[in-house]
Design a protein around this nucleic acid. Structure first.
Lengths: 300, 300
DNA sequence: CACGTGGCATAACTCAGGGTTGTGGGACGC
DNA sequence: GCGTCCCACAACCCTGAGTTATGCCACGTG
């Protein structure tokens, strides 16, 4: 079974027809047809039963499916890695961050960086933590920013700064002295809230805290990204628990915020590969991020 | 990077020279040389630096190494699987068992089976538990016999019978009524014993039991298979803790045995793939194994 | 130093396999 | 009955992986 056959088999399996698979691989339909037969000849058993001019995977084909997909995935990853190793440091700063940080820290930091290095080019992207790790090891990006401790063993993960989980509320919810104090978690009882269903460490921490409140808060809308929660809060849909960066992101007047009590720490991490030391641009960038984050978290 | 290139790269990496790699892949040296250059051209960076007419892997090559090896392994496994799927049920009974059971249960059971099915052919082999699981899923074998609970999620593992951990000793160590009683674990204190360094569940259980005995038994010789322990005991090297099958295997007079007290259960499992139901021969074989094992464990 | 040796690269050639276009035929919907 | 969709077959083409023959370089050795 040559690699080409494996790819073809996979393509046919996913698309369901030889014609579509051929289109996917950019070859002609007869080529695909012939190759598939060739593969079956080599294997000694049929991968698809031709019934009524259509293809139907055999029992054996389904048994091979998982293995094949894994190999395809690995090969694909290898390609990604090698292509990225081909152009070493084509771009001095390739950063990826979680969606949470995309609208607050990242753009501001990039603008500041370009004041120090006017000619520098940068590539920015957003990814969730799991993809972030993949992307870093495959050298598609050099720096990752996240609020989650991934526990990745080969990637370096260093703490940049820490803040607290915040309660955000529609404008006018709190007044005067209230605004300068922490918000006791018990006061969330029976409150209308936006649910957080993010599957990372912070998300599950927030969920477990909410579930302990008695009587339970009323949750009508649940969201998967903190930004959405903030928008909903700004529109008066209720309170929400969010990370301190989302709380301060966007228009300052659109929501009110107070730290949750008891304090729940949120840590901003930078991740990078351990092998290649950071270049000056990248170091400066992380400096800027740290300063920016600290300043942002200091202000109310 | 074509699969052929990956194989070649791997071969060069392991053998250390193009010539040797070419021999390994059964191609000529120039073919390998050209292919490697081709690969490097495609990749855009060098995999090996030619220094003094010899090859030396570059930094990048080492980064790719693990990934490449994994892919090679997976492809190889796939080949194994497909070749075994090609000849479905060429042999009605392909059994693999741990070395522990190889000399006691398996031969006897096979002989008995061939009295019921004189024309049947069988393939027997021994493997450790991890390889056993691999071999079963890759369809190189249909039935596996082991004393360990592998916790494998896709393979069926069913209990055939259970016995107890036995203490074996050189002939003449015990006399009269002693021989019919259990052997209290405390009596192992300061005794000369054969150490067991098997890394499976049973092995670590035995080790932890031995380590609790005060004062510690004297362990001069450690072995990785129970058979070896039995041979050493038979030669008067000391006592040993072994599974009940090893205890009863071989010449009955060569060692004495008594169950350990407190009892430590040892379970005989049969493993097979869940998809293909067992054929009559295989069912009969498992019946014979069970009967044989129970009879063996009943006798002293 | 001259020489043999071991290892890689180059050159010229062969050939099979993977690709193409063109065509035919069966199953299905209308 | 006809158009459509999809697969298989045929004839042809051409790239690329393989071959043998040979040269070059570095190194060890008498």
């Amino acid at each position: 079974m040559r690699l080409r056959n494996i790819e073809l088999f996979h393509a046919v399996l996913t698309t369901g027809s030889i014609t579509a698979a051929a289109k996917l691989l950019n070859i002609s339909q007869p080529a695909a047809s012939k190759a598939l037969q060739h593969a079956e000849d080599n294997l000694g058993f049929a991968l698809f039963s031709r019934v009524g001019g259509r293809l139907q995977p055999t029992q054996q084909a389904l048994l091979l499916r998982d293995r094949i997909e894994k190999i395809i995935q690995d090969i694909h990853d290898l390609q990604r890695l090698t292509t990225n190793m081909g152009q070493p440091n084509s771009c001095p700063l390739r950063v990826t961050c979680t969606p949470t940080l995309a609208l607050t820290l990242l753009p501001a930091a990039t603008v500041l960086l370009r004041k120090s290095f006017p000619n520098v080019t940068a590539e920015l992207s957003t990814q969730h933590s799991a993809e972030m790790c993949e992307s870093l090891t495959l050298r598609e990006n050099d720096i990752g920013l996240t609020l989650q401790d991934t526990g990745h063993q080969t990637l370096r993960q260093r703490e940049l700064c820490r803040g607290q989980v915040m309660v955000i509320a529609p404008p006018g919810s709190w007044q005067g002295a209230e605004l300068t104090q922490s918000f006791p978690v018990g006061a969330l009882a029976s409150q209308t809230m936006i649910g957080i269903t993010v599957r990372d460490a912070l998300g599950s921490m927030l969920q477990s805290h909410l579930s302990k409140v008695e009587p339970a808060p009323k949750i009508a809308v649940s969201v998967q990204t903190y930004q959405l929660a903030r928008s909903l809060v700004a529109n008066g849909e209720g309170f929400a628990l969010v990370d301190p960066f989302t709380a301060r992101g966007g228009d300052a007047k659109s929501v009110q915020m107070r730290p949750l009590k008891p304090h729940l720490d949120v840590v901003l991490y930078a991740m990078h590969r351990p092998d290649s030391p950071l270049n000056p641009v990248q170091k400066r960038f992380l400096d800027i991020i740290r300063q920016l984050a600290q300043r942002m978290l200091a202000q109310r």
